[in-house]
Amino acid sequence: MELILAIVIAVLTGTGIYLMLRARTFPVVLGLTLFTYAVNLFLFAMGRLHYNAPPVINMSDTHTDPLPQALVLTAIVIGFAMTAFVVVLALRARADLGNDHVDGIDIAEPEPAETQAQEEANS
């Protein structure tokens, strides 16, 4: 179980970081989301893994630490809000800059005249 969780976190982190380093806003947002998942799982795992153990004392023989669960809930809520914000911001940047490159410069467009025409069309 520990091994599976560790692998999942590692894969999520790896994919997340790879996607965050991409040049377009959409993969970056996806990467951020995956990275947030990985981080939330990591925080959750910091309370150690227990089977069939409620986070309440005296419910059964064993109990698990409730605090990481509370912390991870907070982190999920915050992460969700931030993702929503970054999606809106990426859309706005797409509208303002005319492309979805993170630096606002679209290298894929070779013709400057074409770019200008497109910018005019956008504005």
């Binding site: 981080v39 990591f42 925080l43 795992a45 910091m46 309370g47 990481p68 912390l71 982190a75």
Partner: peptide
């Protein structure tokens, strides 16, 4: 930040 916090709590 969360990773750091998680390790510290753990």
């Amino acid at each position: 930040f969360i990773i750091g916090l998680g390790v510290v709590y753990g």
